[in-house]
Design a protein around this nucleic acid. Structure first.
Lengths: 132, 132
DNA sequence: TTCGTAGTTTATAATGATTCTAAATAGGTG
DNA sequence: CACCTATTTAGAATCATTATAAACTACGAA
């Protein structure tokens, strides 16, 4: 299994549940956006197996801490995650409530002119809201 | 009262509660960021009067719909609002969990090169995460 | 291989923000 | 004033997320 090393290298034991979640999240050409609830549905369908919601929350948060997933800053009642952890941005379609990737190369360079004393910039994220 | 017309013009009846909330939100030099919970505390202190939480939620959402308040896109368990409705951006201090305004003029022009068919750009918001 | 221990998983309860409900109250118009 | 509708309210309901505590598992050491 190709995910065993990945997990071990981050200090996460490669358990059955984590490997199955890896399959669902990373064993695909495309990256995608999801909520915990959507992921739960996808696991049930794809792995044909139920993993406890608590485990899914734990695992997603562990993966996020290790940099395998990114949280997307958006106002929603649910938290959105992204399997694309490269530096990029998002469109948010207000009508369809859908996220669309906006690659870094599709946004001109962003220059933050203001500095905050004693703080470093960790990330710069752009959210472009779309309407019809 | 200077807020009566403002409310009436948006089709909102100028009730005692709404006027008091206006006082707390807009009767100040400075704009600020708040959660519903923080607003509730501020009302209790400043107006020395309790307004039902349901009313505060209703009013804040009504004001947001009318463009008197803006929701700030950020991942938090609580929703943040901003009394500064001009086009601007935010720093988010990850350690202190505090928002700081980033004026439009402090960010170079942002050029979105990708277009989505049939959709117009409604807003472009930048979130700059800060660490120590 | 077996053991021991710390890491994981799980069902379920708890939490906390937000929304809903239904009854009481208040604005505004005739 | 009289009426009708918008608004307020306390409290219940909802829903995502987190905590709990018991059962289970990975894995290094003996």
């Amino acid at each position: 299994m190709k995910y065993i090393e990945k997990l071990r290298n981050s200090g996460l034991r490669p358990t059955k549940q984590r490997l199955q979640i890896c399959e669902v999240l990373f064993n695909t050409e495309k990256t995608f956006h999801f909520t915990i609830n959507e992921l739960n549905q996808k696991i049930k369908r794809q792995i044909n197996n139920k993993i406890s919601l608590a485990t899914i929350y734990n695992t997603v948060h562990a993966f996020e801490k290790k940099g395998y997933l990114k949280q997307i800053p958006i106002n929603s009642n649910q938290t959105y995650f992204d399997t694309n952890v490269s530096h990029h941005h998002h469109f948010y379609d207000l009508k369809d409530e859908k996220l669309i990737d906006l690659e870094n190369s599709d946004v001109g360079p962003i220059n933050i002119l203001k500095k905050i004393n004693g703080k470093k910039i960790k990330s710069v994220e752009v959210l472009v809201k779309l309407e019809d």
